[in-house]
């Protein structure tokens, strides 16, 4: 089976004046089509750096990165922009939605820059994406009129609106409570079931175990890989959590 992602001894060195920060020290990382991978590691271990490289937002200091067999290092700025647009959906920890712009328009944004003209009706596609993440009724709200969980869903809708092959999510549940986090994980599991490759960074072991494979990195290197024989089912967990909450409320 072909790898969607194949990284060979990737390094990333940040130059801070005189000081060199070795954020990544030789990462070898492969992902199959349709996989759901979690990346875990302590703060400062290089998770975000890795995600930015995977998302073609940044370039490595050395090493090779193949995306669907294409050597990303050989691409120019324009081609990288098109890859970000066509193949990758990125979900940021801080949402990164355009302020004072409606949820719908935020979700439409990637379609504006798609020159392939595949999607004839961007408004409709954006609505469908919002529907997929369960907030179709919030289309006309601006980010500051949405809760954290809702904002994260808008961000996920934006990531999936252009039918990418891969969704990269850097701590998507970092800013939201447990219930909402599990709720967001149901969305990712649903998308994964539809065939989209998902790579997700998280600090929480609970969240990581919704994936089939967990990759642990430390000091810029992959240290350990764990295969979850029985990944958790977010939908089930959500139902139980909701039941528990209802029970608590009853007691009070």
């Amino acid at each position: 089976m072909a790898y969607v992602i194949k990284m060979d001894s990737i390094t990333k060195i940040y130059q801070m004046g005189e000081v060199k920060v070795h954020a990544l020290r030789g990462i070898d990382f492969k992902v199959n089509e349709g996989e759901f991978v979690s990346i875990m590691g302590p703060s400062g271990s290089g998770k975000s750096t890795l995600m930015n490289l995977l998302g073609c937002l940044d370039t490595p200091s050395s090493g090779e990165y193949f995306l669907e067999g294409i050597n990303v290092n050989s691409l120019n700025k324009k081609q990288l922009a098109d890859i970000r647009n066509h193949k990758i959906g990125f979900v940021f920890q801080g949402f990164n939605l355009l302020p004072r712009t409606s949820a719908l328009e935020n979700v439409e944004l990637p379609l504006i820059y798609d020159r392939r003209g595949r999607i004839k009706n961007p408004r409709k596609a954006a609505l469908e994406a919002l529907d997929k993440v369960g907030i179709a009724d919030r289309g006309h709200h601006q980010p500051n009129q949405l809760s954290g969980g809702e904002q994260q869903r808008v961000a996920i809708a934006r990531a999936l609106v252009n039918n990418p092959a891969i969704i990269l999510a850097d701590e998507p549940t970092g800013n939201i409570d447990t219930l909402t986090s599990v709720d967001v994980m149901t969305v990712f599991q649903k998308l994964n079931n539809e065939g989209i490759t998902i790579i997700l960074v998280t600090h929480e072991r609970d969240i990581a175990s919704y994936a089939r494979r967990i990759v642990k990195i430390r000091d810029g290197k992959v240290r350990k890989e764990i295969i979850e024989e029985n990944p958790r089912d977010a939908k089930k967990d959500l139902e139980e959590l909701k039941k528990g909450q209802a029970f608590e409320e009853e007691i009070q």
Binding site: K77, D82, I83, R84, L98
Partner: peptide
């Protein structure tokens, strides 16, 4: 600047 970053991250080219 952040808005520009967001646009670039979803696939805007420099020319756009």
């Amino acid at each position: 600047t952040r808005e520009i970053g967001i646009r670039l991250s979803v696939g805007a080219r420099s020319g756009d």
